[in-house]
Design a protein around this nucleic acid. Structure first.
Lengths: 162, 162
DNA sequence: ATTCTTGCAAAGCCTTTGCAACTGC
DNA sequence: GCAGTTGCAAAGGCTTTGCAAGAAT
């Protein structure tokens, strides 16, 4: 993990069960949902629906595409996952037990680097206030090239010159 | 316009022609492209491909969907338009002759409000430097409710209580 | 004359949805 | 047993693309 986890009193599974039970229309907790929550919270990565589906297959967990999409939505609603829009597709990351942060995204290797910015919140609040805007959330992504890809590129340029 | 325009020495059309001529493989400047550039720069709005297509129809300019998409891409490459990803679709706005800024997006009426933040650039630079990250651009969107929608909502709540 | 662009329709990509079978409570 | 969930395949929304006809240089 990039940052120390936040202390939480419940497991992701119990938090999810609580969410399901608490909805206006109570929802059920199924085997597929249990497996998904367990799998997703067994590692700290950014992933999209497709990657997750592949990884689940490798892990011998047979859960259909439709169920994966439906469960991801519920997990976002439940506050267990955060959704990030990136290059026209949805990316997910842990929300529960993990501090709010933003991302540097490498356009070469697509790595996501997390960063914390206490000043940013203050800035967002000020801007919103100036426009009498009721902020509910924000998205900040810094695009560019990570240090590894930059080095690789530099090395390649050197080779090209020989 | 929300902000004063930047002084530019060329018209959007001539800048585009220059871009087309300067590419490794020179590209042609067609009637459809001319009409599109003229139309797009005749007003300062945020728009997506679909809205543009509708507006073009109203303006009696018959340009096919494919050509609109293809030309929008070229205009982005040429530095005439900026592309903003929003709710799974692409939005466009003037780049040439207009200062770099970020957006507040109302989730109720989908209005986009532009704002300038000198401090932000410094912050982004610092974060990038800390991670030895070569920044090429960023996206910052503040989501929430604009003042008009907030008022409307308040009014509705009042009515509901009667 | 050559090569690039257009317009059409078809395909692509990611995500959502209708429906019959199934399952948690 | 009833209401909500699954899996499948089909549909949806937006964008891209193959190809023949047309236009720019």
């Amino acid at each position: 993990m990039t940052f120390p986890a936040i202390e939480v009193s419940q497991t992701p599974e119990s938090k999810f069960r609580e969410y399901l039970a608490t909805r206006p229309k109570p929802q059920r907790f199924t085997d597929q949902q249990r497996d998904l929550v367990k799998y997703i919270f067994s590692r700290h990565t950014h992933f999209d629906a497709d990657q997750l589906l592949e990884d689940l297959k490798i892990a011998q967990l047979n859960i259909s595409r439709a169920t994966v999409y439906r469960t991801l939505s519920k997990l976002v609603d439940a506050g267990l996952l955060r959704r990030i829009e990136l290059n026209g597709r949805m990316c997910y990351e842990h929300d529960y037990g993990y501090p709010q942060h933003d991302h540097l995204v490498c356009e070469s290797c697509h790595k996501m680097i997390e960063f914390l910015t206490p000043e940013l919140d203050e800035m967002l609040r000020q801007v919103s206030a100036q426009h009498q805007f009721q902020m509910t959330g924000h998205t900040l992504i810094i695009r560019g090239t990570c240090i590894e890809c930059n080095r690789a590129r530099g090395a390649k340029r050197k080779l090209d010159r020989i």
